[in-house]
């Protein structure tokens, strides 16, 4: 058996750990906040350093991320081919980062969110069953608790803890995440909750008789003051529905737009938009729509915008998006007050 000295050491350590547990369960910041700030600053610097070495390899995966449909993929590939022959000197990771930032800029300008970009420098271990990541922006960069985090594809999560130079973000697929969502086509409202699984979330409509079809896209409804969720951010699309309209047990499975296992560049929404962007930030759907009617919903504006990923497409989509937010925005300005 271990000696007396060792037994005293063990007892002391266990008592200290139990004290931490009790203090944490009691709630509040606790006496550890200054130790936390110091330790997270040191570890954050190390994590950023390792990230500089590691990110070229994860960046290579990002540059082949999802595009929306075949036609735009071909056009993108042709334009990418042209770009490649011009820009042979640019490194792979710089280009991937530039694309991720481009996508983020497109989303933030279409929806008129004021965004601070940040990079994911650490990922919480899977054994925790908590989907959390660390980003390299903190309170010194203007980040506060409960701000929305997005990337070029849509909603990523919200800020959980803030340190001076780093922050912890809890992702939308985490079990503790519940986002107010709105169906893009029918404007029905419900709650999207994370299930702890990477590619499926649960959507519960407020109105049990509302229509819902597979393929419907969901955007955030928006919380008061834009915290914790700003309005109009794409969440995901409905992948499966069990039960029929009217059944209380009807549950829709939603596949998020964001690939949470491949996060690199994200943006933290510092200030939500003045008007609700409604559906203008959603990527275009597959169906082709004739005519240029902009008095209808934004789904058509998105289809008219065409290719999102080409340079020309970006200019068109942001024009169509912003021209559409005004009439819709005026309507929703009152709704947004609630």
């Amino acid at each position: 058996m271990p000696s007396r000295r060792i037994r005293i050491t063990i007892a002391t350590l266990l008592v200290a750990s139990l004290t931490f547990v009790i203090l944490d369960l009691r709630g509040g910041d606790g006496p550890l906040s200054s130790a936390r700030a110091a330790a997270s600053a040191v570890v954050g610097v190390l994590q950023e350093g390792v990230n500089v070495v590691v990110s070229p390899f994860s960046g290579a995966r990002d540059s082949f991320s999802t595009w929306r449909d075949q036609a735009s993929q071909i056009a993108d590939l042709e334009e990418e081919n042209a770009k490649l022959s011009e820009e042979l000197s640019a490194t792979l990771s710089d280009r991937a980062r530039a694309r991720a930032l481009d996508e983020l800029l497109r989303v933030s300008s279409t929806g008129r969110y004021r965004v601070t970009p940040a990079e994911v420098i650490s990922v919480g271990p899977a054994q925790d069953f908590a989907w959390t990541v660390g980003i390299d922006a903190g309170s010194l960069d203007g980040i506060e608790k409960d701000m929305t985090v997005i990337n070029g594809a849509g909603l990523v999560g919200r800020v959980l803890k803030v340190n001076p130079t780093t922050s912890t973000v809890v992702l939308l697929v985490d079990v503790s995440s519940a986002v107010g969502g709105r169906v893009a086509t029918t404007e029905e409202i419900g709650i999207v909750s994370g299930t702890g699984r990477q590619d499926s979330m649960e959507f519960q409509l407020l109105d049990p008789l509302a229509e819902l079809v597979i393929g419907d896209a969901l955007v955030t409804f928006g919380s008061r003051g834009g915290r914790p969720y700003a309005p109009g951010i794409p969440i995901g699309e409905v992948a499966d529905i069990t039960g029929s309209a009217g059944q209380l047990a009807r549950v829709a499975t939603v596949r998020p737009f964001v690939d949470v296992s491949q996060l690199s560049v994200v943006g933290v929404i510092i200030r939500p938009p003045r008007d609700d962007p409604r559906d203008s930030v959603l990527p275009p759907r597959d169906e082709t729509v004739e005519g240029e009617s902009i008095d209808e919903g934004s789904a058509e504006a998105n289809a008219d915008a065409g290719d999102e990923a080409t340079v020309d497409g970006e200019v068109d989509s942001s024009d169509a998006g912003s021209s559409n937010t005004n009439p819709a925005g005026a309507d929703s300005a009152n709704g947004n007050e609630n």
């Binding site: 931490f20 203090l23 650490s122 990922v123 908590a130 959390t132 660390g134």
Partner: peptide
Amino acid sequence: ATPSDAIV
């Protein structure tokens, strides 16, 4: 020092 929401 790591992003986690576990009980301290």
